[in-house]
Amino acid sequence: MKTFWKAAFAIAKKDILLELRSKEIISSVLLFAVLTLVIFHFAFTADHETMTQIAPGMLWVAFSFSGILSLNRAFIPEKEDNCMEGLLSCPVGREAIYMGKCLGSFIFMLIVEAVVIPVCAMLFNVDVFNPMIIFITLLATVGFVSVGIIFSALSVNTRAREMVLPILFLPIIVPIIICAVSSSSAILAGGTFEDIKQYFLIIVAFDVIFFTVPLMIFKYVVEE
């Protein structure tokens, strides 16, 4: 187990170091996410109550599409430098590689969220800093990344990977986005945990299922 986590952290650390060098993902993803919110800001001139209802949706549009941009690049260093075989020849389980890639992408998503949430609060004047909203966002991000990484590994060797990933990924991830948006709207409208419990349970179930299944099938995706 120690080797598993050591390898997973080494892969995540390496991905972050590569990103710090190239700044390919984070700069484009952040710009895209902020621009999305800015466009929504000019598109909708609604009162505070309406904004409270639609802000979580706008927030998750920004997260989802910028997240897909980020996930599309998750295996590009391995593809471009032909390093996947190098990773596979190491004495670690394929699960550790999956976990490392998830950790790296999760950290990228957290950085995006840390920038986009304050921008959303500023532009739409809604209190998205609510701890329950932050917690739901984090939980939903876990599911988002764990499903995204397996589809990213599947699509990286296809010619039209920029199209293949969203086509495969978005239908699967829709339930978690709907739950995250609905629960955040309910919280902003003054709801309690009881009001969002059903959404919360769906997100947790989704996280458990869609983290466990990819963990088990990742070896078949990368070895064949």
């Binding site: 390898a7 170091l17 590569l18 190239s22 260093p77 075989e85 190098g86 004495p91």
Partner: peptide, 21 residues
């Protein structure tokens, strides 16, 4: 060589050293 071109020679070897514990 299964090397990451954006990393230095030493960073590449350090990464694989971690993978090999």
């Amino acid at each position: 060589g299964y090397l990451y071109t954006s990393l230095s020679a030493e960073e590449n070897l350090k990464f694989y050293a971690e993978m090999y514990s």
